[in-house]
Design a protein around this nucleic acid. Sequence first.
DNA 1: TTGTTCCAGCTTTTT
DNA 2: GCTGGAACAA
Length: 722
Amino acid sequence: MDITKIIEPLNDAQRQAVTTPSSAALILAGAGSGKTRVLVHRIAWQIRVEGLSPHNILAVTFTNKAAKEMRSRIEELLNLPTHTLWIGTFHSLAHRLLRRHARQAKLPDTFQVMDSSDQLRIIKRILNSLGLDEAKWPAKQLQWFINAQKDEGIRARHSQETKDPYQQQMLAVYRAYEDYCDRSGSVDFAELLLRVHELLRDNDDVLAFYQQQFKQVHVDEFQDTNTIQYAWLRLLTRENHNLFVVGDDDQSIYGWRGAKIENLYHFQKHYPDHQLIKLEQNYRSTGIILKAANQIISQNGGRIGKDLWTDAGEGELISIYSAFNELDEAYFVVERARAWVNQGGMYSDIAILYRSNAQSRQFEEKLMATNIKYQVYGGLRFFDRAEIKNALAYLRLMSNHNDDASFERIVNTPTRGIGASTLDVVRQIARDQQISLWNATEFIIKEKRLSARASNALQLFLKLVSELVVSSSDLELAEQVKLIIERSGLLAFYKQDKADKGEEKAENLEELVNAAKLFDANQENPDNLSELDLFLAYAALEGGDSQADDFEDHVKLMTLHTAKGLEFKIVFLVGMEEGLFPSQQSVDDISRLEEERRLCYVGITRAMRKLYLSYSESRRLYGRESYPKPSRFIREIPIDIIEEVRIRAHVSRTLVTPVVKNERLYVGSEYKLGQRVRHDKFGEGVILQIEGSGQQERVQINFKQVGLKWLMSAYAKLMVDI
DNA sequence: TTGTTCCAGCTTTTT
DNA sequence: GCTGGAACAA
């Protein structure tokens, strides 16, 4: 038994966490402090030393990536396959439990997992059938409402009577949505969690069984759990307090989607016997970078509190660049990236991190113009692509004829002469008789409710799907998929579509066959469930990677949220401006502002060797030019670890080139102090100040309607003849 | 049924 | 100022 391998590579705090005899433990793990390592070694310790069977260990993560990594690291450490170890995301574990106990969870055996776009589709349909105006009742908002209710464990019937007509209407939609889900056997993401909670809460035998089975429960990124997730963790560990959680209150950045940082505080109350261990030694960044991170995060209130330290030395100062405009900012970043590579570095050492996706563009353009390879992370995942979802919808409809979302999706894809008016009739009948679209279609054909042509088209569609069921029943999964994309006409449809990247979409469909093959080969299926259903759930729950691995050396671009958990030698944190980061929507609310600050902390702590911050003095956003102030987060960094980059030599080049053709128009000022002018939007006003010249000239105007404004003369289109 | 035009919206994202 | 989706026309 090789205990040294488990214990040796750890520092004192890590070792304490890994070997703690206490059942309940809270490991407060700072950025880069070896959080995953602790979890991996802890589980290995329990198997090797405490003699637990892998089967008795549950470990929950938020992403499939984290789950996969943890499993493979445990296998590597123990040199032992661990397929009996219960490790996975909250959602995939919930799915597994619901498949096992479908009946007790009051679900049909064939229930299907729908993703958020399926959900949105259904909600739109419901809004429509309730006769609600989409302009006044945006489907997105209803979706948000429903998910938020579910995340809090609230069913439509639980909500107290409310007098507020707005609230009443939302609840009515929620109720109708629940009805639909029950009828069609569809389960959305939030429902997976809520169902499991109800399953455990209402079935003593099931709860006792799993309490018995899971001798130790581990949770990664505990600060990101929501109410319902924590509720089922509590149920599972109610008897033995065998809950080991790892988290960092300073890295909670998902409050806006229901994560409850409070769960960390509640944990301390609910498990009074817990051990609190802080991991504060950082193995990633330089002393300077940590100093900046510590200083910024210390501005937040209500922290449990910790300070990161390293024995790796101070490292380089943090460089701050103040750009003229966003083009100049991109220029700066690309120049520095190039310099790094010229000194022997790799482009893959570099990450450009921004607050919002819209910011990626300027960098992409500059990188492309400079012939530097880059990749934007995040975005559409493989199983989210329209063509893939269409193919899956065929499979889903084959598996469950009552899946209205899939029915709607493919009934006329590829086009087969089933138009909107025909579908309106189908929907109407489905609604009146409370039956699925499939059954309504059968009814229509039998009762001859439509013209021969429409009826015929519908008939052909039903026949197509039914025949696919028959002819694919004996095939392997991948063969099934292949048959479906061919016989449904999808493949041909995309192949002949020259305009809309049809080629690529056809290729993706073929890739889906591969994905099915791979899934087939790796599938464990211990509970012997329908393979097709498992594949469909896999597609909904895993989504696939957003891009294929690119082995070429490239710069990485991503949002700060996406960067969480990653590390890079060189980090450019760009767009450090008030209104952008922190985001305008967050500046007036202290708790949201603190979340922005945590996001900044996350961003800074991604950097291993060198951190660059940049902001722009002028920024074009949503078609408007703005003159943002540098982000308050910059001011929160101690001045002595900052160096301002002052290279303006190249700036004239970037600035002058695009501007030249207008320059001439604005030699000297067109305006005088006190002059009366009129503006398209702001109406009439008087010029109070003039600053700068040429393209950079700004005028301050006192408008009758809206008061004082600074405007760029070049863009303001002021009328003077009044 | 397709192509066009119009119009709102515009943080962050996983499952 | 751009994008995606919906409404509209041919």
